[in-house]
Computed example of a mutant assay.
Amino acid sequence: MAAITAERLLEVAVAHRNTRWATARGGVEYGRGHYPVMIALHVGLVVGTLTEAALAHRAFVPALGWPALCAVVLANVVRGWCMRALGPQWNTRVIVVPGLPLVSTGPYRWLRHPNYAIVVAEGLALPLVYGAWATALLFTLANAALLTVRVRVEDEALRPAA
């Protein structure tokens, strides 16, 4: 969990750097209203996982925990691939720089929103490493609602570039 937390903090730093890059090039942010909800949900995933595992005395179940850990590692490798493909356009916010084409390399060659598929997979897998099945369920349901908004905002923002 410490590694995931450190990775998320690194993502926030990269996102801040990329926000400055995009803003300097006339980037426009979309969907600001849902961003605090997204941050709270992702913090809640980590806190909920640790809290549930501790308070419910969840034991590590190797048959579930090891595959879930492999899924978390794979998800983060693919997230890194997404970040690399997008370069300075990658962000935790929806910021569009006018005139830039849609990225169609890396995983974006096959999926329009590969990072969101990763978030879904990780939202299920990370809690299950710790046996925190209730957190996996609650995060997945809340994340489905959030992603409905997020994908709509992003698709609308990217429409001119398509």
Rank of each mutant, 00 (worst) to 15 (best):
residue 132 A to P: 01
residue 119 V to P: 06
residue 120 V to T: 06
residue 133 W to D: 09
residue 43 V to H: 08
residue 109 R to T: 10
residue 95 I to W: 01
residue 70 C to W: 03
residue 160 P to K: 12
residue 80 G to H: 13
residue 97 V to F: 13
residue 117 A to Y: 15
residue 9 L to D: 13
residue 146 L to E: 08
residue 115 N to L: 06
residue 72 V to N: 05
residue 116 Y to F: 03
residue 103 V to E: 11
residue 65 G to F: 08
residue 72 V to H: 07
residue 38 M to Q: 11
residue 72 V to R: 07
residue 94 V to Q: 10
residue 74 L to S: 12
residue 89 Q to I: 06
residue 11 E to L: 08
residue 135 T to S: 09
residue 122 E to Y: 00
residue 143 N to Q: 11
residue 119 V to C: 13
residue 146 L to N: 11
residue 32 R to A: 03
residue 34 H to G: 02
residue 64 L to N: 01
residue 9 L to K: 15
residue 39 I to H: 10
residue 83 M to Y: 03
residue 128 L to A: 07
residue 75 A to R: 02
residue 107 P to V: 13
residue 34 H to A: 11
residue 155 D to V: 00
residue 70 C to A: 13
residue 42 H to N: 09
residue 90 W to S: 00
residue 14 V to H: 03
residue 40 A to S: 12
residue 5 T to K: 04
residue 157 A to N: 09
residue 110 W to Y: 08
residue 115 N to T: 01
residue 79 R to S: 05
residue 11 E to C: 02
residue 148 T to E: 05
residue 159 R to L: 09
residue 18 N to P: 14
residue 102 L to S: 10
residue 123 G to Y: 02
residue 62 P to I: 12
residue 23 T to L: 15
residue 62 P to F: 06
residue 37 V to S: 14
residue 59 A to D: 07
residue 69 L to C: 12
residue 80 G to T: 12
residue 70 C to R: 08
residue 48 G to N: 09
residue 87 G to P: 13
residue 74 L to C: 08
residue 91 N to T: 08
residue 66 W to D: 10
residue 150 R to V: 12
residue 120 V to F: 00
residue 117 A to I: 11
residue 55 L to H: 04
residue 40 A to G: 05
residue 45 L to Q: 06
residue 73 V to W: 15
residue 82 C to K: 07
residue 134 A to R: 13
residue 87 G to V: 14
residue 20 R to M: 02
residue 103 V to G: 00
residue 139 F to H: 05
residue 28 V to Q: 15
residue 17 R to K: 14
residue 55 L to S: 00
residue 4 I to C: 01
residue 60 F to Y: 10
residue 143 N to I: 06
residue 112 R to F: 02
residue 63 A to P: 05
residue 94 V to W: 03
residue 106 G to M: 11
residue 5 T to E: 12
residue 104 S to T: 11
residue 75 A to G: 05
residue 24 A to I: 08
residue 70 C to T: 07
residue 55 L to A: 04
residue 61 V to W: 15
residue 133 W to C: 03
residue 75 A to P: 03
